[in-house]
Design a protein around this nucleic acid. Sequence first.
DNA 1: TCTAAACCAGATTGACCATTCTGGATTTGC
DNA 2: GCAAATCCAGAATGGTCAATCTGGTTTAGA
Lengths: 222, 222
Amino acid sequence: MTPQAEIALSDPTLIAPINAAKELFWRQGYDETSIEDVVGATGMNRYALYNAFGGKLELFLAVLENYFVERKNLFLTALSDPQGGPMAAIREVSEYCIIEMTDRGAGCLMCDVAAEVGRYDKAVSERVLSYLEEIRSADEMALTQAEACGELNPAISPKEGAALLIANMLGVGALARNGAGRRELLTLFNSCLRLLGRQGDAQGLQRKRRNPQARTVKQVSN
Amino acid sequence: MTPQAEIALSDPTLIAPINAAKELFWRQGYDETSIEDVVGATGMNRYALYNAFGGKLELFLAVLENYFVERKNLFLTALSDPQGGPMAAIREVSEYCIIEMTDRGAGCLMCDVAAEVGRYDKAVSERVLSYLEEIRSADEMALTQAEACGELNPAISPKEGAALLIANMLGVGALARNGAGRRELLTLFNSCLRLLGRQGDAQGLQRKRRNPQARTVKQVSN
DNA sequence: TCTAAACCAGATTGACCATTCTGGATTTGC
DNA sequence: GCAAATCCAGAATGGTCAATCTGGTTTAGA
């Protein structure tokens, strides 16, 4: 991130324009979003925009950073002190993300749009990978707790499980971007979570249960 | 697909140009690839290109269709009569795809580049989803065989498992596009396959085995 | 009130690119 | 060998867009 973009992020009057621009980039992509679009959506004029951010790329970097931080907070808050247990917390934040993606039919700002920009600027790709790693590690933390309460499928380590969750969410994003429906994507995520959980270890679970027919898993209502 | 693109696909002299253009679009994306690039890579001149395909978009559609067909054949061939068992066949084709993606650092032509074009042309997005469904159904076929030989984790249906495989591959593609390494992605895919397989049902497996310590799974050599 | 700085909107620049045009070269059929 | 069709390469066209410029307007400070 450029120093200018960093300054932009800390200026409270720029929060609203950044959010407006984020919405545009997220829905339309980087190339498809013109400065004129941003002028229209933010209410700022070109002069002020260039003054505050420096240019289109720098504006996008500020947007991306804002999205990064927001997303990280979302995950860390929900996963560091999960009320209903770690698996429930993972489900909660993930379903929130899926709803965001299907609302926009636009996948993940970080991975899809940022990858577009990554073609110009390799630093963006690296930033994306490092952020994904941060989120993966938040997932891993939650899965470690899950392991401790016996909620994790013993066939897998928290680390591997977290990587699977990330990949699954990226896949869900790719499908959303091509127009897949919310219900379908929630079901897909649900299968993933089921395999990661103790329920994925079907026989092992059955052996512990008093009534094996209760094996089916509570589905999301969507 | 336009009639013109369909004709282009059936003309054997256009196979080489289509493959050259595919390589460009795959690596660089649609917007970043100029007609001049294509002229350079294919050896065809602009006049001939426009004559054969009609325009840039039509050229891309021909490329996409070619990729679709090739990919479908790859999956159907490997999965319809799997020599070393269905799970091995799934592993084989998937690892092939991962190697392709990491070679180019460019994810999946179908999902990543086509989604870019899908912004102009909704028909492209729909085509992408329908093709993914075809590949998913090939995976489902293989997983149904796996279920019959007791190689599938009983916690999951072949249908769900196939959807998970697709999502996982799309996620792997997103990671590859941002520069993730081959080894990391193969490991990730491996965890996915392990959960889908009988090994994902750790306790159940343990109960059937004579020596439970043989629980670890053969890893890919990469 | 006055002055200097900040701000605005529209016009302009400069670059890129898909597509078409054109006039000459090459091939093809007879 | 010749005429007609096909092909070629570079120039030209038209459009888009980021970024800058300009000349006038508003605001803020003393």
